[in-house]
Design a protein around this nucleic acid. Sequence first.
RNA 1: GGAGAGUUGGCAGAGUGGCCCAAUGCGUGGGAUUGCUAAUCCCAUGAGCCGCAAGGCUCGCACAGGUUCAAAUCCUGUACUCUCCGCCA
Length: 420
Amino acid sequence: MLSVDFIRTNKLKVLETLKNKNRQADIEGIFEYDDKRREIIAKVQALREERNKIARQPFTDDTKARGKEIKEELKTIEEELRLVEEKLNTLLSFVPNVPLDEVPVGKDEKDNVVQRKWGEPRTFDFKIKSHIDLGTSLGIIDFERGTKVSGFRGYFLKNEGALLHLGLLMYVLQKLTKKGYTPLIAPAIIKKFTLFGSGHLPWGERELYKLNDVDDDAYLTATAEIPVTAYYSNEIIDEKDLPKKFVAFSPCFRSEAGSYGKDTKGMYRLHEFWKIEQVILNSNNIDEARTIHEELQKNAEEILQELGLPYQVLLMCTGDMGEPQLKKYDTETWMPSRNGYGETMSNSIMGDFQTRRLNIKFRKKTGEKEYCFSFNNTAVASPRILIALLENFQEKDGSITIPKILQPFVGFSVIKSKGE
RNA sequence: GGAGAGUUGGCAGAGUGGCCCAAUGCGUGGGAUUGCUAAUCCCAUGAGCCGCAAGGCUCGCACAGGUUCAAAUCCUGUACUCUCCGCCA
């Protein structure tokens, strides 16, 4: 959410953003409804003022009569205000955030800019297997029974697969905790306001699982970003307590409506996965924002480096970033069976877009209050990362070598082939 | 799921229709005093809006409605917390 003031003073930039991010919003309508709103508020406040004055005076028949009038007038005018505000907020909620200057203008993913690559994709001297074949033959992933029990995109992780999944998450949770991030286990059942707050609504409704039959204000979260960003909703944080850094676990649920045909096999696109997410709240200082963004990026890259997985980092163009983002990096990890890089992490500066919706402010030393900036980046998402892990570290005999860093967390150094 | 008791500012806590535009204390921030520390004293400290300023206004007592000329206070619903019963990991 942007403020009307911001949109007024930066109208050209906002219109340009609509074009660059390929979105639509009724800017003139916003101005119109905002004018109406101001006008009505003035009236409402004047009437309330009179009412309050009368109520503090000695009670007479005259005051009673005037009081009754005011009551009636307020009733209609407050209803009018409610409708205007509702309309204004709806219009406002569709205005995307304005990207930073260094973000490339572009139409779609083809216009993203590779920032750097790390690691050489391994060349194999044998015919490689996909994670699907590896997982099945090693007895560590069971897709058939997964879909039997859970449905399309269902899976079981089994034996070393199960241990690897949890070990990875624990490794990352511990690593970032040591860096001073607060570990957090976030709720997966969340209220609607958190989704609106994060910017997943009003745009992404189709992506979400809704628990209508149980509770009409209950959804399954798509990422820990949503509950964790809302953690401080309606709160004011002392500037000296910033930044707030979290490393948060949650299961993630995605209906993937609209992508039925995509990535239908394997562990790339799933309805259900587990993820450790980095979430930071800070002041609205833009230089600090860039620094924090790089810190989040460095954490993610360190993880991939320690795992020994080749990756590339992309600076996302305007057309391929979401509504709330000021700037976004995607980190893509090498996946041999795709013969290419696949997205495994996504790192965003959200500015005050989310914090306005969630009403999260910070108090400066001077006592002034302003909206915080929010940030988030994946730390690790599994099973997707298992694709890279299994495929990159497979051996000729079908076994998998486990990266050193993970061994203490999983309790083995190799997943042995069950014999061929 | 059932029965009962609660919910006032960062915290404690007063207020049971109009003198509440929420007392007081603690905490916090700023200042004075001060070899250092402590203590003491002064100012500020719910949210927001208007104004260059002086100053003014609105909202706010879990949330949402309602009654009333007037609501923290009365009524209804909801959420949450606590105690007990049931169920459950």
